[in-house]
Write a protein that binds this DNA or RNA. Sequence first.
DNA 1: CCATAAATGCAACATTGTTGCATTTAAGAT
DNA 2: ATCTTAAATGCAACAATGTTGCATTTATGG
Lengths: 142, 142
Amino acid sequence: MVTTRVSIEDLLREAGARVTRPRLSVLRVLLEAPRALTHHEIARRVRYAHRVDRVTIYRVLDWLVAHRLAHRVASDDRVWRFNAAAEGAHADDHMHFKCSRCGGITCLEGTRASRRVTLPKGYRQQRMEITVKGLCAECAFA
Amino acid sequence: MVTTRVSIEDLLREAGARVTRPRLSVLRVLLEAPRALTHHEIARRVRYAHRVDRVTIYRVLDWLVAHRLAHRVASDDRVWRFNAAAEGAHADDHMHFKCSRCGGITCLEGTRASRRVTLPKGYRQQRMEITVKGLCAECAFA
DNA sequence: CCATAAATGCAACATTGTTGCATTTAAGAT
DNA sequence: ATCTTAAATGCAACAATGTTGCATTTATGG
């Protein structure tokens, strides 16, 4: 995704936030990433440009998620991953893919993670989370 | 599930393990639980009877999973949960349900978590993990 | 009862994330 | 351009979950 600095600023401003260097950097990193990134990966990329505290990055990520500029993706390795959701139109109802070799997580655009299921008596269904496990193109090739 | 002490011993012995008090206790706790338990919940129940080190419980759980006497279930709260799999026949291919209020996780017996999905070019599918979110009977009622 | 490998307990460490609080700063007001 | 102030940041300490190294204890076969 190609995004100029100006439009990243605009995204933040439209959300009603102060435009700060940590926010610009984190959002830019997410927008440029081809897949969901962990806090660790984000911090590494951000710090490559300039120093930002880990706690600040956690808080920026929380803020981005709360303001729907990013998605938070769970995984079985107990580490949150984050995706940019610049368009805001990114429905939160698709499957995710997790490579069992490199651990990378990507959204499976065009899939639907919703289906009515027969639950035990008294249970109420709200939504569904589906993760497809396998090998990504790079790991399958190697 | 009703299980006598003798049969729990047999389960361990058949798996080729020494029969020790921590293993008996942990497996018994899992067999008696109506849903998947966290390490914390297991430790609390085991220690109610006698003192066992946390590390030992982690190692017993690892051992049970490796020997297919238990299943390990991931969740978005970054905490592993464990189910007894006494029959060994418990296919590892069903959906899970997670209550968004109490956090409890149960297996949805009779469901299948496998479906072929169209992946990006070069990707290879191995399996699928499906979690249905909602309210369990108790929380839906309250 | 003995020998021994396996299991346990303990302390220390690792990773991921959170909280409290003092300091700095973006952005509107002057 | 400067000032004011709430918002954002940085830092230190803490919390939860899980792992590793190693000395001690113990279940089991002989």
